[in-house]
Design a protein around this nucleic acid. Sequence first.
DNA 1: CAGCAATAGTTGCTCTGTCAAGTGCCTGGT
DNA 2: ACCAGGCACTTGACAGAGCAACTATTGCTG
Lengths: 161, 161
Amino acid sequence: MNTDLDDPRLTAVGLLAEAYTGLMNRLATQFEEHRLSQVEFEVLMRLARSPGNRLRMTDLAGQTTLSTSGVTRVVDRMERSGLVRREACPSDRRSSYAVITDVGMQRLGEVLPGHLELVQRWYVGLLPADRLAELLDSLRTVRDAVNPCAAAGSAETALPA
Amino acid sequence: MNTDLDDPRLTAVGLLAEAYTGLMNRLATQFEEHRLSQVEFEVLMRLARSPGNRLRMTDLAGQTTLSTSGVTRVVDRMERSGLVRREACPSDRRSSYAVITDVGMQRLGEVLPGHLELVQRWYVGLLPADRLAELLDSLRTVRDAVNPCAAAGSAETALPA
DNA sequence: CAGCAATAGTTGCTCTGTCAAGTGCCTGGT
DNA sequence: ACCAGGCACTTGACAGAGCAACTATTGCTG
């Protein structure tokens, strides 16, 4: 019928999607064990890696997949559970910082080792070093094209490298 | 503080996530122009590629990222907009098929060319052929580990290849 | 320095999807 | 032949996230 249905480009997208969502599913289980969602984990990571352990709400939104209202709500929840607190920005009364608390830091410390182990097992450990390097390089090419902000921004997802 | 915060494995996950979500954002715009969501597009694709243009609800759930109740609801909506219809399964009265309609096929035909073009521009076209082949190979390795069902199942995301 | 456009954040409404419970149907053991 | 347990699907209640509208601030421009 429609020959486009067999286009190899669809396979390419499918593989990317399945690899990503499959990996995330593997990781999600461990987050749940520690009463964290994926989004919450990312918020903790971003804050922990930022100078002063803090980020303005808008910047946090820019560094995640969330809208600003999404960030408001996540921070609401995390503030309620003590992982994060809001702090006024002295230089601009419109802004406020989200700051990771000691409890948040501790929680992150509990999750991270297991998380890294899972990433090792289900992703980076599956490929020989040179293949992995090539993979990351190609992903970076796509990422830079598709999401130039992340490339230009202060941080990649995790590392400025 | 916590040296794990700089682990390169986090960068690896970050690149995968940003490449994937960034690409999806680019593709989403075009879907909206055709009044389709990403999930609806995937449902149409899966059905169009299946024998008899149909799939049991459960199988459709297995081939997407949705739960069975999620599939029930997507198919509800798509049935309402005429893209899909339900049909009873003669051999098992518990099951029902989702079948893509002519309208659904036509809609898919409208979206697909532009979709492929975008995939070309923001993903496969960014890499030389040999790099792309390596990328897909590595992604397949990860996918097979992380989501063995997809590998074993009747179809990859798009192609059985 | 008054006024106004732009910005940071929050909130109401809505949509989408999940989980758990419920219905009806199928099947294997006795 | 029965019924116990399992399966396919649906439904109700609810959580997460986005958009658009709103408030409070800021800072530019005349």
